[in-house]
Amino acid sequence: MKDIFTDFYNTILGFFRQTEKKEENAKDVACNRLRVVLMQDRTNLTPELLQRMRQELIELLSKYVEMDKEALELNFEQEGNQMALMLSIPVLRAKEESEIEEAEEKEFLEDETDEKTLSEEKSDEEIEDETADCDEASEEENSEENSSEEDESVEVDAEDKEKAEK
């Protein structure tokens, strides 16, 4: 007897819910669009500038960590009255100290040598890098579980941006 009643309630409730259902939630779309637009309004930062900033940050950070460049996120977030620039970096692994030093040396050399020799050096390095990448890839395959654990996203509160109008 009780089952019949629950069935009955379910069909009626289902009917009402059906009428309520909408394909897309217009409210959330509005909220999200507004947030993006307001951030641009408040900061006067164009999408192109944001892209440039992103690129330069990748260059800088890849000296210290190996990361998933595609998944890197750079967004504005609102915290009360203040705007914060949130950088989320999926880290694959931190680089060894020797690697960092190597990169620094490379930079140092790049500064000293003229452009011609620099391009020659680069081509040599690229070949080396490729072989190194292959080794790493096979290693990563072996330890997939480990790498997923290492894949932590580091949130960097890079810069507090006050409202543009302030």
Partner: peptide, 18 residues
Amino acid sequence: LIKSNDMMSVDDVVEILS
């Protein structure tokens, strides 16, 4: 409209404009 998620709620607007 707010109930059916077709319009931003009061809380949404207050949060966005803080």
